[in-house]
Computed example of a mutant assay.
Amino acid sequence: MSDRLTPEAALAALSQGGEAPFMRVFAHGSLEIEVYRPVGRDLQTPHTRDEVYVVIAGHGEFINGDTRQPFCADEVLFVPAGVEHRFENFSSDFATWVLFYGPEGGEAALCQESE
């Protein structure tokens, strides 16, 4: 991956990287940035840290816990650590940045520790 984090560069690296629908493109401290482009179905499971999606392209439906909502390009979506989530009925051009950050258990775990 080049030192520029552009959608084009990240998606080109992903397409050369093999079968996985995601690739880490940047890491610093607790921040990890991936590019994610599932094909057909989103098979991810809950993650141990908070995450933010920034949709690069496409549209569909996003399931976040008990909530289902439409999404489209340029939208920002947040998922707390441990919450079931996935993309459904997404267009064939769907791709998104994924930003993981903070401690294991998410920032909510920090709030509980300080109480």
Score class of each variant (00 low, 15 high):
Ala109Glu: 03
Trp97Leu: 07
Ala95Cys: 09
Ala13Glu: 10
Pro80Arg: 07
Val54His: 04
Ala13Trp: 02
Phe87Ala: 08
Ala73Trp: 10
Gly106Lys: 00
Val52Gln: 10
Phe22Asp: 06
Glu34His: 14
Gly18Gln: 03
Phe78His: 11
Gly102Gln: 02
Thr96Gln: 04
Val98Cys: 01
Cys72Glu: 15
Ile63Thr: 15
Leu77Cys: 11
Cys72Ile: 12
Phe22His: 13
Val35Glu: 06
Glu32Pro: 02
Glu113Tyr: 10
Val83Asn: 03
Met23His: 12
Gln44Met: 07
Leu31Ala: 09
Gln44Phe: 06
Glu51Phe: 01
Gly106Ser: 00
Ala10Leu: 05
Ala81Val: 08
Phe22Gly: 01
Ala95Lys: 06
Ala13Pro: 00
Leu99Glu: 04
Ala81Thr: 04
Thr48Leu: 15
Pro46Asn: 09
Ala73Gln: 14
Glu32Ala: 06
Thr96Asp: 00
Phe22Gln: 08
Tyr53Trp: 09
Glu113Thr: 09
Arg49Leu: 03
Met1Gln: 02
Met23Tyr: 07
Glu107Ala: 10
Gly29Ser: 12
Phe87Val: 14
Cys111Val: 14
Ala95Trp: 09
Arg68Gly: 08
Val98Phe: 05
Ile63Gly: 08
Ala12Ile: 00
Trp97Glu: 08
Gly60Pro: 07
His47Cys: 06
Gly18Trp: 02
Asn89Gln: 15
Ala10Asn: 01
Ser92Glu: 10
Glu61Ala: 14
Glu113His: 11
Thr67Pro: 11
Gly58Glu: 03
Val54Tyr: 14
Ser92His: 09
Glu104Arg: 03
Phe100Glu: 05
Gln16Met: 13
Leu14Ser: 04
Val98Leu: 03
Arg24Cys: 04
Asp93Trp: 07
Asn64Pro: 05
Ala20Thr: 07
Gly18Asn: 10
Pro103Gly: 02
Val55Asn: 04
Pro38Tyr: 05
Gly65Ser: 03
Leu5Trp: 03
Trp97Gly: 08
Arg41Ser: 13
Val54Phe: 13
Ala73Lys: 06
Trp97Thr: 08
Arg68Ile: 14
Pro46Val: 08
Phe87Met: 14
Ala109Asp: 01
Ala10Arg: 02
Gly102Met: 07
Leu43Thr: 11
Pro46Leu: 11
Asp42His: 13
Gly18Met: 04
Pro38Ala: 04
Val76Met: 12
Ile56Leu: 14
Gly102Tyr: 02
Glu104Ser: 06
Phe87Trp: 12
Trp97Ile: 03
Val76Glu: 08
His59Gln: 15
Val25Lys: 00
Pro21Ser: 08
Pro103Ser: 04
Glu8Arg: 04
Glu88Asp: 14
Ser114Lys: 13
His47Gln: 03
Asp50Cys: 15
Gln16Glu: 15
Pro70His: 10
Pro103His: 01
Pro80Tyr: 10
Ala27Val: 10
Leu43Cys: 10
Glu8Gly: 00
Leu11Phe: 05
Thr67Asp: 13
Asn89His: 15
Gly65Phe: 06
Thr48Met: 11
Ile56Glu: 06
Ala57His: 07
Glu51Lys: 00
Glu61Gln: 14
Leu5Ile: 12
Tyr36Arg: 05
